[in-house]
């Protein structure tokens, strides 16, 4: 086991940027008991191992991570008043209850799964994920979430050009995030967060929680739902954290399942390239 991890870490150090050391450390820190538990995990994961990551529709076993009842209990289905409805949100809503927009949680669940799956795949490929919001009420929670999954957060005033003019702003060539997760797509009641247009300009995919008064068009993976209630935001944060941390578990199962192959022969490069 130690041998495998060492070769794995050496390989990764020569190929990837410094962020990887964190993930390797977290792999090292796992106890033997959890490793055993991971190996005995559900058959879904073992079946998934037979396919490559992108061929399997739920490679990280994220479908059971939430239920529609949970979404309902977290008050995800509540939209704003009917007068503030953005017509582009119409495909995602169930109807209007006495003037209040109610989201269709079936479509929310489908789109939320697509977004979680995409997040996990980006994390699996060692992409940088940036959580963005400008809502003071939830900014601490979002920063804590980003910290917990060793990713990044931006919850303050957005300076124009943070992505588009990053070389000048940071004084050096800067690696931009590979995925932006926006938990509140509005800065004020009427204005869209500038990160969405900037990410689209720099060809960075965006996952966004879109409430009934938001414009979902530029958002790559929109999740229709309530973006104001703390319980709802807590649920989103928890799910994204789970999705990102599920990647570590998958790494471990893959490493352990390939241990036999690696220990015997020294065809490391071939085996590794088939994983990545």
């Amino acid at each position: 086991m130690a041998n495998v991890l060492r070769t794995f870490s050496r390989w990764i150090n020569t190929n990837r940027v410094s962020k990887d050391s964190i993930k390797i450390n977290s792999l090292w820190n796992r106890s033997l008991a959890t490793e055993a538990a991971v190996l005995e995990k559900s058959s879904n994961l073992q079946e998934a191992d037979k396919l490559s990551a992108l061929e399997h529709e739920d490679f990280f076993n994220l479908k059971p991570s939430f239920t529609i009842k949970q979404l309902f209990d977290a008050r995800v289905h509540f939209g704003h008043k009917e007068g503030t409805l953005d017509p582009k949100m119409k495909p995602f809503i169930f109807g209007s209850r006495l003037g209040h927009i109610i989201f269709d949680l079936d479509s929310t669940a489908e789109l939320l799964f697509a977004a979680l799956n995409f997040t996990a795949h980006i994390a699996y490929r060692d992409g940088i994920i940036l959580f963005v919001s400008q809502n003071p009420q939830t900014s601490y929670l979002i920063e804590c979430t980003a910290n917990d999954c060793k990713e990044f957060a931006h919850t303050r005033l957005w300076r124009q050009g943070t992505f588009t003019n990053s070389t000048m702003i940071y004084g050096a060539v800067t690696r931009l995030p590979d995925l932006v997760i926006v938990l509140n797509t509005l800065t004020t009641v009427l204005e869209q967060h500038p990160v969405i247009a900037e990410a689209a300009k720099m060809a960075i995919p965006v996952i966004g929680i879109v409430d009934s008064n938001c414009n979902p068009n530029l958002i790559t993976y929109p999740i229709p739902g309530n973006d104001d209630t703390p319980t709802a935001v807590e649920l989103y944060c928890k799910l994204f954290k789970n999705a990102i941390l599920a990647v570590n578990t998958r790494w471990l199962t893959i490493i352990l399942s390939r241990e036999m192959v690696w220990d015997g022969s020294h065809k490391k490069t071939g085996e590794l390239s088939s994983i990545f």
Binding site: L54, E110, A114, F118, R125, A203, P205, T220
Partner: peptide, 16 residues
Amino acid sequence: PLWYEVYQAFPPKYPP
């Protein structure tokens, strides 16, 4: 970009 294949495999339901 890093997301290119992932997007190809799981295209969003509504093109952005």
